[in-house]
């Protein structure tokens, strides 16, 4: 029998699929299942999906959409999602504006400098994320470094209230995620064929025009990759708004946290998580189709 024999090629495709199934699909299905349940005070704190009648027979489906109705009806959830999307979007744009020149300079730096520059970008990761966010508290708070510095040079007489505001959240997100924006940008810009820029100049484009017409469109994959890489986790960010944000910083991550931990309402928390995933993934899927269509 000369049947189909699995080879390396098939294994190579199966590996990421298995990874995705194991670490995304299965957990997602569990969350989906919980989102259809009812919160109860028990271990675990939600009703079972299948209710087995006493004395045998077919089980009844215990699924309900109540939690989704709550998510859609109570404007808190919509608002905190919109808020999170807005903060993440603004942060992403700011990051892009900072990261692009940095990545550009790195990609154009002499070849023997680049490893050192790359290292400098990654270096902050060697310190715990939490410590770095705490460090920002020390910088931004009323009695912090920034205010002391500004007051000592006489730029301000009253401390700026940055800590516990959306400003601090933006600063924290931009700072924490910046490397994830720089690296994909650097990768695309470094690969950019410089003779294309010479060709543009030769055809009459001054540097700024060739940047807009050649460099920028060709670095679009890096821009998209970097933006997705920072935008999506920033939307769900919990630690930064919790530590740096103020009372009016309501982001979806915090809302999920409250429902899950404070209210032990796992089904509602799961429903929010599923909704958030749909809101984030659906446009991406459309975008992908748009790009390929």
């Amino acid at each position: 029998m000369t049947g189909w024999r699995p080879g390396w090629r098939e294994a190579a495709i199966l590996l990421p699929l298995a990874w995705l199934a194991l670490f995304f699909l299965v957990p997602f299905l569990i969350v989906l299942k919980i989102s259809l349940a009812e919160p109860i005070l028990a271990q675990p704190p939600y009703s079972p999906l299948l209710v087995w009648p006493e004395g045998g027979g077919w089980p009844a489906l215990g699924a309900r959409l109540d939690n989704y109705l709550v998510v859609l009806q109570d404007d808190l959830y919509v608002r905190s999602l919109l808020n999170a999307l807005r903060i993440a979007a603004v942060s992403t744009v700011v990051m892009l504006l900072i990261a692009y020149p940095m990545a550009y300079a790195m990609a154009r730096a002499p070849k023997n400098w680049r490893p050192a520059l790359l290292l400098a970008v990654i270096l902050p990761f060697w310190t715990s994320f939490l410590i770095r966010v705490y460090a920002w508290i020390g910088i931004l708070k009323d009695e912090g470094f920034l205010n002391h510095a500004l007051m000592s040079v006489g730029l301000i007489d009253q401390p700026l209230v940055i800590m516990n505001t959306d400003w601090a959240v933006h600063i924290g997100i931009v700072y924490s995620y910046l490397p994830f924006m720089i690296l994909p940008l650097y990768a695309t810009l470094e690969r950019l064929d410089l003779t294309l820029l010479e060709a543009a100049a030769d055809l009459g484009a001054p540097p700024w025009k060739s940047f807009l017409q050649v460099t920028l469109p060709l670095s679009l994959p890096g821009i998209v990759a970097g933006s997705l890489l920072v935008f999506i986790p920033a939307v769900g960010e919990f630690v930064i708004p919790d530590l740096l944000g103020g009372s009016d910083t309501i982001m979806i991550g915090k809302t999920v946290w409250i429902e899950f931990f404070q209210n032990a309402d796992w089904p509602l928390a799961s429903a929010i998580a599923v909704t958030m995933l749909v809101v984030l993934v659906a446009p991406l899927a459309l975008l992908r189709r748009g790009l390929h269509g």
Binding site: L76, R79, S247, D248, I258, Q262, N263, D265
Partner: peptide
């Protein structure tokens, strides 16, 4: 109770989110 808890949470979220 679970229902009271949701009510408390809703009030709380409204208060925190108001501005």
């Amino acid at each position: 109770t679970q229902a009271e808890q949701r009510l408390f949470t809703r009030i709380w979220n409204k208060v925190k989110g108001a501005n």
